[in-house]
Nucleic acid binder design. Structure first.
Lengths: 116, 116
DNA sequence: CAAACCTTGACACACTAGTGATAAGGTTTG
DNA sequence: CAAACCTTATCACTAGTGTGTCAAGGTTTG
């Protein structure tokens, strides 16, 4: 059987019917439609639904995060801008050497003393 | 003047002091601290704050989205899993050829007719 | 030392994400 | 044809994001 209805798909994928409709609205897994408008889930959709669920649970991320990742993949300008911003990011604690940090602090002390 | 206080940084970056503290909690832009705990913003932080604000406004994304992108960059397993999931994604309208779609629909019709 | 800063914490509010339940109405099927 | 599906739309509720304001208390500075 290739095309399951939403309840059948829900049972075999671990999502609720309600959530399958919600997932569809996020654009992450879209079901085909029968002539009368019923959602039809094929093996591909079922597979993606299962792996999507596992992905969310394993990393504790949300549907909106994955939707954003999808947007990053399809919107080159956005991906470009985000990556550029992230690369100009030397202030994260792990990336600052103790020596640099100390020098920064000392510079500030000098300035504060000089200003007083 | 290299190190600005939070109010000064707010005025020159376009964020409110409240939001600068919030941005810091997201981990995206962290200020250095004076000996007594005051936040000190250097030119680098100011630059990143300005470009971050422009990034958010230009693309209509949220701080949490950029925070997620940062997590993608630093967590290889997560990036791997997300990319793998996105690649197994042939059902997005743009990625499905008209011929494939038609065949899928026809298959379903055959099945529906056969079942009737 | 008092005014003008800074800090964290908390109350408050609007909006989005995520999720269930339920209603009104069409479809499929034994 | 009636039971068991399906559809969209709506109400409701929790949690998280984004943002302002205010309180209690430490710091800096004219």
């Amino acid at each position: 059987m290739d095309a399951l209805t939403i309840h059948e798909a829900a049972e075999t994928s671990g999502w609720s019917p309600r959530m399958l409709r919600y997932v569809e609205r996020t654009g992450l897994v879209t079901a085909a439609r029968s002539a009368s408008g019923y959602r039809l889930y094929g093996p591909g959709e079922l597979q993606r639904l299962r792996t999507l669920k596992e992905l969310l649970e394993r990393f504790g991320v949300g549907l909106s995060d994955i939707a954003f990742a999808a947007r990053l993949e399809s919107d080159g300008a956005l991906r470009e801008a985000v990556e550029t911003w992230l690369r100009s990011e030397p202030q994260r604690p792990e990336h600052v050497s103790a020596a640099d940090w100390l020098r920064f602090e000392q510079d500030k002390h000098e300035k504060l003393l000089a200003a007083a």
